[in-house]
């Protein structure tokens, strides 16, 4: 009796090894997804695309189970990981760490427990922890924007820069931007933190407008900040002298680019949908058995009137 069971098990293992698809259908896998809560527009987009991707993957692959957790701070996110490993018995983790430095060691513990780990968007402080890294291109965002400014100002121009929060992402973008415009005649009059936020964009831009009589363009780095800056420019009736470039690809900004606005001529993408890319690739690791370990960098594309439709997601909250 016992011997017969063992034989059957051996046969089953052989069958699974021979055909990856049969292997996938038999076993159930649980993928934990941990993302920051929707505390601003971009993370709102992240949550939306995570939910969308999970819904469509659950339909396509009934043997995949998902656990989605949103966390408002690093402490909560670390606890979420512990719960996922201890009580939900996950096979893989997809995580967009709110604070990558603080979450490096909790993620390492998940990795040590033998789980497949996918890290999204932000680099951990230790190299080689994650199996798969899916991220946006921050220096690319700065460089692409800088190159566009250079192309618009062959004879020089006066610009102001509204930065994000004082964290590495912002620095990578600004450094690449400054490098791209280094050999041009563009003059950066001033730069100040506007925290990727509409109200702060409005305030800082108001002050820049009263400080500088001649501004030709604004790099707001973020579409929310750009909306605030545009309101200030309109209040000062200078919308015919200044144009504004945001960033990240918010639907309202892309709509304006699509409609050929002079005030918002282009946008540069930094798509929150990258979390969906990460979940899909992780799911495919289990469904196909194909190699999925490595890095996947989602480009920061230049969005112009010609290609704006491709990046327009009217249903997304972002």
């Amino acid at each position: 009796m016992r011997f017969r069971h063992m034989l059957m098990a051996a046969a089953a293992v052989t069958a699974m090894a021979l055909s990856p698809s049969a292997f996938a259908q038999d076993k159930t896998y649980t993928i934990g997804v941990s993302v920051p809560s929707a505390d601003h527009g971009w993370t709102g987009g992240v949550d939306y695309f995570a939910q969308q991707t999970i819904a469509s993957l659950s339909k396509t692959y009934p043997n995949l189970k998902f656990v989605l957790a949103t966390a408002g701070d690093p402490g909560k996110q670390a606890s979420d990981l512990e719960d996922m490993v201890a009580t939900r018995n996950i096979d893989a983790l997809v995580i967009l760490p709110g604070d990558p430095d603080a979450l490096t060691s909790p993620i390492m513990r998940v990795k040590k427990a033998g789980k497949f780990v996918t890290v999204v968007d932000r680099k951990l402080s230790q190299p080689g922890v994650e199996d798969l890294y899916v991220a946006g291109d921050n220096p690319g965002l700065g460089r692409t924007t800088g190159e566009y400014f250079v192309s618009r100002f062959p004879d020089g121009g006066n610009i102001v820069v509204l930065r994000g929060l004082p964290i590495p992402i912002d620095k990578e973008r600004v450094d690449a931007f400054n490098q791209a415009i280094a050999n041009s005649k563009i003059k950066v009059l001033a730069s100040q933190f506007a925290n990727w936020n509409r109200d702060d964009g409005f305030k800082v831009m108001q002050d820049f407008l009263s400080r500088f009589p001649k501004i030709d363009a604004v790099w707001a780095q973020d579409d929310d900040t750009a909306i605030g800056a545009i309101a200030a420019i309109k209040q000062a009736h200078r919308e015919n002298q200044i144009w504004v470039v945001g960033g990240a690809g918010m639907k309202q900004a892309i709509k304006q680019v699509m409609d050929g606005s002079k005030l918002v001529p282009i946008d540069v993408g930094y798509d929150p949908g990258m979390v969906g890319t990460a979940i899909e690739l992780t799911a495919l690791k289990f469904e196909t058995g194909l190699p999925m370990r490595g890095s996947f960098i989602v480009r920061s594309p230049l969005i112009t009137q010609a290609n704006a439709a491709e990046y327009y997601h009217p249903d997304s909250p972002y």
Binding site: H40, G41, G44, N197, R198, D199, D224, I227, A231
Partner: peptide, 12 residues
Amino acid sequence: PRLGSASSTTGV
């Protein structure tokens, strides 16, 4: 009426 919008970052 200033920006015509409200989000989770309003009034932080």
